[in-house]
């Protein structure tokens, strides 16, 4: 037995121009912009963190190995 309100749901989606996260009208959701910017920021910051962390690891290893190879 179908219990989902397909008809009213479809009408609501059509009226909103689509469905997007949290149900706001598609393409007009300011929260989606904020989430996208957050995602971009996390991407950039994590790449910077990988770079900084690796730099420290390699510097440490190079110092440790300097005597062996020099």
């Amino acid at each position: 037995m179908n219990t989902f309100p397909y008809e009213s749901f479809n009408e609501a989606v059509e009226a909103a121009g689509g469905y997007s996260t949290w149900g706001a009208p598609a393409g007009t959701n300011g929260t989606m912009v904020v989430l996208a910017l957050l995602g971009i920021a996390i991407s950039v910051i994590s790449a910077v963190m990988v770079t900084v962390r690796e730099n420290a690891l390699l510097d440490h290893a190079a110092d440790r190995l300097a005597e062996k190879y020099n």
Binding site: G18, Y19, S20, A26, G27, L35
Partner: peptide
């Protein structure tokens, strides 16, 4: 028209797409 911009409906769980 905003198509595939990250906050556009085209890049969301859109049952019409």
């Amino acid at each position: 028209e905003g198509y595939v911009v990250p906050w556009d409906a085209s890049m969301s769980p859109n049952i019409g797409d």
